[in-house]
Structure formats: structure tokens, C-alpha cells
Write a protein that binds this DNA or RNA. Sequence first.
DNA 1: TCCAAATGCTTGACATGTCAACTACTAGGA
DNA 2: TCCTAGTAGTTGACATGTCAAGCATTTGGA
Lengths: 168, 168
Amino acid sequence: MTDDTAPESAPRWLDATQQTAWRGLLAIVSRAFPEFERTLKAHDLLAVHYQIFAALSEAPDRTLRLSELADGADMSQSRLTHRIRVLVERGEVAISADPDDRRAKNATLTDVGMTRLEAIAPLHVEDVQRLIFDPLTREQTTALADAMSTIGDHICQHPEYLNPRPGS
Amino acid sequence: MTDDTAPESAPRWLDATQQTAWRGLLAIVSRAFPEFERTLKAHDLLAVHYQIFAALSEAPDRTLRLSELADGADMSQSRLTHRIRVLVERGEVAISADPDDRRAKNATLTDVGMTRLEAIAPLHVEDVQRLIFDPLTREQTTALADAMSTIGDHICQHPEYLNPRPGS
DNA sequence: TCCAAATGCTTGACATGTCAACTACTAGGA
DNA sequence: TCCTAGTAGTTGACATGTCAAGCATTTGGA
């Protein structure tokens, strides 16, 4: 009853502090994120699309190889393929073949896309400020950034901690 | 160009600290959460199902009215209706009519369901520890809990900050 | 009593996410 | 050259999420 197959040491239950943090995170994800999505949707954009825009807008020449884009925008390649289609159809993103590697393609944020991003970004940022940062003091924000980036870096730098990997 | 329709004061862009926090949050949501989901899926459970189990297991008599369950498990009523079906079919959750209000129904976590939760909880908790809390110091965890709960409370106590509301 | 509005939940259509093939190309060694 | 393995991206089937509409019941007031 105490030694069955493999990882059968006593479970590391969350302590009270951890539970508090965890519940807060769940509330944010399930209440604030859908709100962000609704605001974007009112302007014919999904959160996925916004992430694509944001990643491209910060890249040199507003251009990224598709695989880099998928990684930079935190999504799988297949999801990227599916969702970027409408952006290309609208002329907000342009896809071009990579001259050096005929397997690869580059995505570029067009002027039309950039204009669109500039129009929507203020609304999105206002949502984020209102639901995430407004209730926090300056000190809380600093502490939050410290903890979040520690976690984020850890996840990204140790992909071996993730099973099959999201990709492909 | 500076005064068009309504909320057209200068956008409150994220400062460097806020950006750090925000990027970390996005990384957690798009990399850690899918990982949690994969672990659960390997045991024929969705994150939604786990949330349902967790909420019911903490309720008196392991029982909640469906609307309370939806709220406690952070999901819309329609999503709850759709996803709880398989749990009922498996006998892990039981639905019963409410004697006082014939519109309402109560959901109860059965012994079968409780056993299932007890089997899976250690795996899920281990994932959360590994991807969220392991990289943090004790102080960072405390600060994270403080900030997260502040944000979470704010969202839950001020639903007027959310547009249409997720529900129904 | 009657009726309109609110509440509790369900349904179905459609949009999105996920996963496992699959094509095309590149790299590198026999 | 040939072969195998690896990489880049796409596709399609299916699972899940979302939204608006719907039914049944309750509430509360005329």
C-alpha cells in the first residue's frame, strides 16, 4: 500500500501559501483571460492572433521564421498554421519562402497588420492593467514580476520537464 | 488624431516590471497548463473534470448545486453541463433533483469519484510543484500568493469589471 | 389569479484546440 | 550516389470551448 510501481513517495501537497497562489492563478486564467479574449473578439481578433502580432512586431524587419514565431508566441506549429491563415487572407501578415532553406517560410507583419495592432493594443493593454495590475501596489507588482519570471524562465529553459513537448 | 470617440486617453502601456510579470504569466499559461492537462489526460481526465472533482470534494456532503459548482470550479454553466456528462456516465458524480427548487440539481462526488480523485491528485500536485513552485524560494512563494490572491479577489469581487460575464 | 421577469439548466451549431499522420526538404554518413 | 534520420510546415479528424437560444420553474407584483 506504500510502494506500488514507480513515483510512490508521499505526495507533496500544496501548503496554505501555495494553495492561495494556485487559486489566484486559476481565477486569473479562467476569468481574466476570457475577458481579454472577448475584447479582442469584438475587433475580429483572437488572443492567438494578438500573440502573433506582438511577436512579429518586436522582431527585426517584423519578420520571423514560422517555427520561431510559434515558439515566440507560445503556441504549437499546427495551431499557428491554422490560425495565421485568416491574417494572411486579410493582408495583415505576409508569408514568404526562405531563400536559404526551401523547407522554411517567413512571416512578416505588414503595414496593414501593424496599423491594426496599433489600433487594438491600447484596448488590450487597458484590460490587462485593469484586471491584473490595478489592484496591486508597486511592491506587489515588483514581487509578482520576480516570481513569474523565475517560473517562466525555468519552464522555458528546462523543456525536459515537459512531457512529449507541445510542438509539432 | 488624439480625440476620436470614447476611451481615448493615452494608453497605459505596461512598464518594464509589468511586462516581465505579464510574459511570465503567458509562459505559465501556454506551457505549464497544457502539461497539467496532458498528465490528467493520460488518466482519462480533463482539467475541467479535475476542477469539478476538487470543488465537490471540498463541499459539505461532497455536494453542490450545479450553479454553485460552475462558479466554484471557474467555468460557465453550459461548459459544466457538457463536461460533467462523462463523469455521471462513469458513476464518478451523481446528479439529483433539488427537493426545494425543481429547477435546480445537485451534483455529488460519489465514492468511485473520490477514489479516482485520490488516485490522480498526487500526480497533478506533483506537476504543479515541479513547474510552478519548485523554482521559487520561500519568500518568492509568499509574495506570489499575496499578489495572486489580491488579483483573484479583485476579479471575483468586482464582476462588473467583466463585460457580458462568462456564465450561461 | 395572472403575467412578466428572473433563475437554473440544457441544447445545438459553430469556432477553436489538439494530435497524429503526412509531404517536402536538408544533413550526413556509407 | 544512396540511404536514413532529422527538420519545417501542413493537413484532417476529432475533442473541446463558446455562445445564443430554448425549456421549465420560481419570484414578485398588478
